[in-house]
Design a protein around this nucleic acid. Structure first.
Length: 418
DNA sequence: TGACGTCAAGATCCG
DNA sequence: CGGATCTTGACGTCA
């Protein structure tokens, strides 16, 4: 069983992705951005290995205009060594990677041009997986596409166009129920014709249910049957409904109570769960820790190192409570730990508390900062207290110092991210 | 024609 | 001039 996240990571240095707009897409610029993005990708893979994250979705934007004539670079040759090196890390660690071409890759479109570009886009994604040298259990997830006034005909069109894909791409492709058009039942019907495994997305199902009501357990059981030898473990997407947003919009973070309820009900734990959530790796580590008590209190202490200053800033009371909670080294109070962090983050940041936290952080610099930096900090602190400097700006100044003085403990702190 | 989703680039504003 | 903040891009479908 693995739990994973999509594309981006929070609070890990050197993992940002860059992009290029069409009018600036010169060869030089494309080379530079691809090199940068591959470096970031490798750092994310390293992070995943370090943290024991076994499932990861790679960003489709890794190669800008990867499937478009705008990018004429033979990137698969130019960066062959990078792909191979990263692929080896993936294979050696047992990590499973995937791609999820977006809502604009539409295989069943009535427009031949759109279909051709969708095929080209899938080739691009598949080529990256081949460059990495990963097996066919590393998949590409696709939505079915549009309806165009006749769902039955559009479904048949999907099946027809599927046949046009190269054989390796057919083997990689898996299809997912979406939140508006194709229900899991309809996707299963197509999957029976194409032989594709089906990814069950619980929130899409809630937003776009089948006529006959069935629960997640039922649909996970049904979609499991589409996963065959060589496809790897069954994969599902999991997310939670944000109360204050439209139906189908997911929460910013995964709430452990409903997640654990979902998890406990899973009939077969031999499954990979891709979380779709704004806080990405943060929820992933939380859910991994919550389902793997054998990780021990060290796992929570490691988490605490990242969260402590942002918690302190929100609530001194909860900061102290969590410190108490972690004192018993034989216990594993994972649910209380994350519940307290969540409660803290929900609280408004009060100025006095923010100043207190900032002074804790400043402690890392006070002996190494030069006079100019010391004066700047004191000036900013005063300005912030007087209401003349935004909280975020004040913190960004300190983040710069953390980067300049290469302080690992602060560079990985969520104090600068949440 | 806007909404949908996403995030960084580009553009512009400000001190 | 550098940094902060706002707008655009890139994609296809549907209402």
């Amino acid at each position: 069983m693995s739990i994973g996240y999509a594309c981006l990571v929070i609070g890990v240095p050197e993992t940002n992705m860059r992009s290029v707009i069409k009018k600036n897409a010169t060869e030089d610029k494309l080379m530079e951005v691809i090199r940068h993005n591959l470096h970031s990708f490798e750092k994310m893979v390293d992070y995943n290995i370090e943290e024991g994250v076994g499932l990861y979705r790679i960003s489709s934007d890794l190669i800008p205009f990867g499937s478009s004539p705008v990018n004429g670079l033979r990137w698969w040759e130019l960066f062959r060594e990078d792909f191979e090196r990263i692929g080896q890390k993936i294979n050696q660690s047992g990590m499973r990677v995937s791609f999820h071409p977006g809502q604009y890759t539409v295989l069943n479109s009535p427009s031949e041009d759109v279909v051709e570009r969708a095929i080209e886009d899938l080739r691009y994604h598949n080529l990256m997986l081949e460059c990495l040298g990963v097996g066919y259990e590393h998949k590409m997830v696709l939505h079915v596409g549009g309806i165009y006034g006749d769902k039955e005909a559009a479904s048949q069109q999907f099946v027809e166009n599927f046949k046009r894909l190269d054989e390796p791409i057919q083997r990689r492709l898996i299809i997912e129920n979406d939140d508006r058009l194709y229900t899991v039942e309809e996707v299963l019907e197509m999957a029976h014709q194409t032989g594709s495994p089906v990814v069950y997305d619980n929130l899409h199902h809630a937003a776009n249910p089948t006529d006959d009501p069935h629960d997640d357990v039922y649909w996970i059981r049904e979609t499991r049957k589409t996963w065959k030898e060589g496809d790897g473990r069954q994969k599902v997407h999991y997310s939670q409904q944000a109360d204050d947003k439209r139906v189908g919009a997911h929460t910013d973070t995964i709430y452990l109570d409903p997640f654990l309820e979902y998890f406990d009900k899973l009939e077969d734990k031999d499954i990979d769960i891709m979380l779709e959530v704004k806080d990405k790796n943060l929820s992933t580590i939380k859910c991994i820790n919550a389902t793997q008590p054998q990780r021990g209190i060290q796992a929570l202490e490691k988490e605490w190192a990242r969260y402590k200053y942002v918690v302190l800033e929100h609530s001194h009371t909860l900061y102290n409570e969590i410190r108490e909670l972690l004192k018993d080294k034989s216990a594993y109070p994972v649910e209380e730990f994350y519940a307290s962090i969540h409660r803290a983050l929900e609280q408004e940041v009060e100025k006095g508390q923010a100043v207190n936290a900032a002074q804790h952080v400043w402690g890392y610099f006070k002996d190494i900062a030069d006079d100019k930096e010391v004066r700047a900090f004191q000036r900013n602190l005063q300005k912030y207290q007087d209401g003349n400097l935004k909280h975020a700006t004040f913190k960004r100044q300190m983040q710069r110092l953390a980067e300049k003085y290469e302080i690992p403990y602060l560079k990985q702190s969520l104090y600068f991210e949440l």
